[in-house]
Design a protein around this nucleic acid. Structure first.
Lengths: 330, 330
DNA sequence: AAACAGGTTGAAACCGATTTCATATGGAGG
DNA sequence: CCTCCATATGAAATCGGTTTCAACCTGTTT
């Protein structure tokens, strides 16, 4: 691996000049410049990013901390972040936290030690803020709001509106007896969606019925069983996300229920599989790609000293598919 | 951010001594050692990893290049790699190549410039080898074999056996007219699975019928249409992977076919969704987690100078689920 | 011819760690 | 008491870049 000093020697100039040529930070005599470029080409010289990052205090690395990369929702977000980062010449350091606060902290520390330019975090740890030590790296909080982290921006979808739309849609599809499988109430996502559900129930004079369910498939299986044993005559279910909706569907199927004939079902997120599944899931569309893209952009803009908007709430919309049946004659 | 010199000054020792304390590379007087540890604790000092990596020529970063992180198969592999790397105090730099050779090359270059300790690559670019410039970083090739890269190890499942097992299973389930949707023939995965199919056909005196299909959902939709228009009386389909199997299922459903009554269907990979889907997909189980784990282990072992086995082929097995129907009385 | 402006250039310091090497210290052995 | 050796320690070099700063041109103005 050839160094900048080696290039300088071969081109008969100083390392400073080579640096100026590769970075365009100052004028260089065009003859020398050509000579340097030739040598660079000949030797295949590439500046060592570590050395550069060490001096500049910026490694062009963005840390992305997700609870679980296997979860399609986070996979899709990660993909969008990666793509936008790549466009801006940043790289992604991916950390899978497994909802493990210790692991998150360790990863944050590593990113700090690496002079990362930003950390985009999707976390479930409500007490994370209190445990973080001194950290230079700016945070962007994605998908769920948590308290106490002094993030530079937070990005989420309009969960409240989503909760309202989903509930209202089930109503319009003829449901009289809707159960909400509400997500974790410690996060804004769970709270807001549930609030949306409650408000619609109040507005339409509907009975409010709910149970708690975490955001993953296994929890969905468990909660679906609980739901069936607890509530009778259910004709509409609001799952807290698409993975849970899939779990619910499978439980319903195994118990002999038909969807949407007997029970109608709404997901949330619009992960790719919600459309690939048979039947295709009616769900609330979060603009996953746009959210991921913005997260990466915010980090880049912050690094460039540009002003950024702190609160970013994305609009949601409804995908009416095969697990609900809109009575068109309404 | 406090530096090692600052710690040294406060503890009344030299930076060298502090370094020796944190790395345990030499004996240090226990009084001084305690003093240093106290100062480190007070100041919250964490050594800068960039500086360390620059000198050591090892950044404890493993590059992972996947064609598409949204694809569940790669998501699951990435997860396994991340976990094992984490256990060994390595971090993952994730690159999504979109099957774009340019992007892969750029990422390889970056990883090289970052003194990464290894690159685990799942690539579709057969001509990658010829385009890679000088690169210090050792490669591990995962899932598909490509020619010309001088990797330190390659890891894949026994695709040939998988192809045989899948075909034989369809036969035992009563299929007479099996079509193989074969994956890209430029990769060992596609070749070997197809070879397995062909060999079983020959052994049982079956007609060989196939068409080409890439490894993604959209391609699956296209190829399924082609299949139905090209072959009549099909009663068994060997999809090249699970995503394609899902696409095929949806096309069959829309055309009024019943699975497995009219047509039986086999996937490949055993991605998580193959079991979550309704119906659950019969498929060939690749030990995804084990493969990912080994990939990370190989990099770590190589970094430690330990000997490693170059060729690693993992055994596969069959998951008999709801898209095929084994006649038990056989 | 002296003074000055403007643009190039390289030596050296710097980023923050690690490691080499030479020196200082202390105890054992003659 | 002196030599010898082992151990502990810090100064300085190193990794490979970037940037500051002073020096050095070249040409223009007075």
């Amino acid at each position: 691996m050839v160094s900048i000093r080696e290039v300088a020697k071969r081109a008969g100039v100083s390392p400073a000049t080579v640096s100026r040529v590769i970075n365009g930070t100052a004028n260089v005599d065009s003859i020398k410049k050509d000579k340097v470029l030739t040598v660079i080409h000949e030797t295949g010289f590439k500046p060592n990013e570590l050395a550069r990052a060490l001096f500049k205090k910026s490694s062009k690395i963005i840390g992305v901390i997700v609870p679980n990369i296997e979860n399609a929702f986070f996979g899709e977000l990660a993909r969008a972040i990666e793509e936008e980062a790549y466009q801006n010449n940043y790289r992604i350091l991916l950390c899978n936290s497994q909802n493990n606060t210790e692991k998150e902290l360790l990863n944050i520390q590593t990113l700090n030690q690496l002079n990362a330019d930003g950390i985009i975090i999707m976390t479930n740890s409500e007490d994370l803020a209190s445990k973080i030590g001194p950290c230079q790296v700016p945070f962007v909080i994605l998908d769920r709001k948590i308290e106490g982290l002094d993030e530079i921006a937070f990005i989420e979808a309009d969960h409240y509106k989503g909760g309202r739309m989903a509930t209202e849609h089930l109503l319009q599809c003829g449901c009289k007896n809707i159960v909400c499988m509400r997500g974790p109430q410690k996060f804004s996502s769970g709270q807001q969606r549930f609030l949306g559900y409650q408000d619609i129930c109040k507005e339409y004079g509907l009975k409010e019925q709910w149970l708690d369910c975490d955001y993953d498939y296994e929890e969905g299986l468990r909660a679906a069983e609980e739901l069936l044993s607890k509530f009778s005559d259910v004709d509409g279910i609001l799952a807290c996300n698409d993975m849970v909706a899939i779990a619910v569907y499978k439980v319903l199927l195994s118990k002999g229920f038909h969807v949407p004939e007997d029970i109608q079902l709404m997901g949330f997120d619009n992960i790719r599989f919600s459309k690939l599944f048979a039947p295709e899931f009616s769900t609330i569309i979060q603009p996953i790609r746009e959210m991921g893209t913005l997260a990466a952009q915010v980090v880049v803009m912050h690094a460039n000293g540009e002003p950024i908007q702190k609160e970013n709430v994305f609009d949601v919309s409804l995908a009416e598919r095969q697990t609900t049946r809109h009575t068109k004659e309404k």
